[in-house]
């Protein structure tokens, strides 16, 4: 039996725990604790990790990990992303500086982004139109990344599945690239 790892990261409140819950086949394990940070408008926050699982037909498993959002937990980002086959960055567009938020994760995962497929899911775009998805793409381009940026409602399994599908497409394209360069 093999185990594969998929990591959800992103800002506090962007829905990492919700996204894992939307597709996990086991009740998600959460390490949420009372939030004492008055700048965050939420009662609980993840400090360790979230964990969910998808079981494949041959017995292999996909382990879904959610990282803590705040950058003071960036040591967990590294631990959880090691050997992951994909990274999903969730951004909450209702926060004051979504583009600055994105920059934090691009920097925090700079090493992983060199060879790990990554997709950016932006939430609450319907109520918060700016920055636009194109603004995110431009910000990514300025840092040398061409990554998918799509609007998501992580409560909907179909939206979370689309994020994963785009990750797999990246990996497939990389595999073809590797094959041709051999």
């Amino acid at each position: 039996m093999k185990e594969y790892k998929l990591v959800f990261t992103g800002t506090t409140g962007a829905g990492k725990t919700t996204a894992i819950n939307a597709i996990s086949e086991v009740p998600a394990v959460k390490t949420d604790v009372a939030n004492t940070d008055s700048t965050l408008n939420k009662e609980f926050t993840t400090v360790g990790l979230d964990f969910g699982q998808i079981n494949l037909a041959n017995g292999d498993r996909v382990r879904l990990f959610g990282t803590p959002g705040q950058s003071r937990f960036d040591f967990m980002w590294k631990i959880l992303t090691k050997d992951a086959f994909g990274l999903i960055i969730l951004i909450d567009n209702s926060r004051p500086e979504p583009l600055a938020d994105l920059a934090v994760y691009l920097e925090g995962f700079a090493q992983e982004l060199r060879n790990t497929p990554c997709v950016i899911g932006v939430g609450r775009t319907e109520e918060h139109h700016t920055p636009s998805l194109d603004d995110f793409s431009t910000a990514l381009e300025s840092k040398g990344f061409t990554l998918p940026v799509i609007p998501v409602d992580v409560r909907l399994p179909k939206d979370v599945i689309l994020l994963i599908e785009l990750l797999m497409a990246q990996a497939e394209a990389d595999m073809q690239e590797e094959f041709l360069s051999q």
């Binding site: 093999k2 594969y4 597709i23 998808i54 079981n55 494949l56 037909a57 041959n58 292999d60 996909v62 086959f85 599945i161 994963i164 599908e165 797999m168 990996a171 497939e172 595999m175 073809q176 094959f179 041709l180």
Partner: peptide
């Protein structure tokens, strides 16, 4: 090309795709 890219990852992706519909 795809027929020659026979590795574990490819198999994993087909299983995951099947699982996710």
């Amino acid at each position: 090309r795809p027929a020659r890219i026979q590795d574990e990852k490819k198999n994993f992706f087909s299983l995951l795709k099947a699982k996710l519909g």
